[in-house]
């Protein structure tokens, strides 16, 4: 730090009066910012222009109808239901597993070659393309565990997505736990607290905002996934549930919003383009909602050191 701050004025001196390099760099930064904003702006206006008229025209009807072969009768109800169920699955399966793994790795596991190897592997797993998790879901949750999950079922999809976000949950939670100052733990041990008490009363409450933000953000990533769920049996088309109750639906056909969007984008009727945009808006709203929850939770639990 000190060498850097000492070196800074010297380099400034070298450039002389007109700092044209600095100006150029400044300009470059602005151009990149404008460029990324422009892309975002174009995407969002395009989607809104196409999609909003659908909501004006159809209203709640669009949100409550299943997908259909006819654009006039198509809706996103099944997609919303499937996406929300995926969110519940990930929250119930991946979050506890991931957070507990992170606590073990950070607080309990000895720092030896094995745990370091495990850490590196988890990091690599987080970078594995999502399609690979789709293949995993297909071979394990759909085929091998088919008798338990019902094959191409909502449960198989939920487990696949949980496997997909698990490494991300572990990494973000571990980072958050690591960010809790060591002095705090030492103070805890100093007054005779056990490891369990230190973890429960000192580490976790202070790591909570980081853990919550990381996990909720990983959730919104999971909700946008298409490829793994296509392999894990999400219906690319339409389905009816017949006389199935809610419990039976868990073990049978499902679809999610990104798959609905994918299906509609390849339909012949021109009206489906607008429906695709409208479905994208619904997905954006759900993702924004998840992100908002993350921000609220972080602000609520945040402390400064």
């Amino acid at each position: 730090m000190t060498t850097a701050s000492r070196a800074l004025p010297r380099s400034l001196h070298r450039t002389g009066g007109a700092d044209w390099r600095g100006l150029l760099f400044h300009g470059l930064l602005l151009v990149s910012l404008v460029f990324s904003l422009l892309i975002l702006f174009t995407l969002i206006t395009d989607v809104l222009m196409r999609g909003l008229p659908v909501f004006q025209e159809r209203g709640a009807d669009f949100l409550t109808r299943p997908t259909s072969s006819s654009p006039a009768r198509s809706g996103v109800a099944q997609g919303i239901f499937g996406t929300l169920m995926m969110a519940i699955f990930v929250s119930v399966v991946a979050f506890p597993l991931g957070i507990m793994t992170a606590i073990y790795l950070e607080e309990y596991a000895p720092d030896n070659r094995l745990t370091r190897l495990i850490n590196v592997n988890i990091r690599n797993l987080a970078g594995v393309p999502s399609v690979v998790y789709g293949l995993l879901g297909l071979s394990i949750f759909v085929l091998a565990l088919g008798p338990l999950t019902g094959g191409k079922s909502m449960i198989a999809g939920g487990l696949t997505l949980s496997a997909l976000v698990l490494p991300i949950v572990i990494i973000t939670s571990a980072e958050a736990i690591r960010a809790v100052p060591h002095s705090l733990r030492e103070a805890g041990y100093g007054v005779g607290a056990s490891r369990w008490e230190v973890t429960r009363l000192l580490v976790l409450p202070n790591a909570a905002p980081g853990i919550l933000t990381g996990t909720v953000l990983s959730l919104s990533r999971a909700l946008g996934e298409t490829a793994p769920l296509l392999l894990a049996g999400a219906v690319l088309g339409g389905f009816s549930t017949g006389s199935r109750g809610l419990r039976e639906q868990l073990f049978s056909d499902y679809t999610v919003l990104p798959v609905t969007i994918f299906d509609w984008s390849r339909r012949a009727q021109a009206e489906f383009r607008d429906l695709t945009a409208a479905a994208i808006i619904v997905l954006l709203v759900i993702t924004l909602f998840a992100n908002a929850v993350a921000i609220i939770l972080r602000n609520r639990y945040e402390r400064s050191w």
Partner: peptide, 16 residues
Amino acid sequence: ELFNQANPDVAIRVDG
């Protein structure tokens, strides 16, 4: 969809 209007208890899955 047409068939389900008459026979709502049949669960049909159409994939593409």
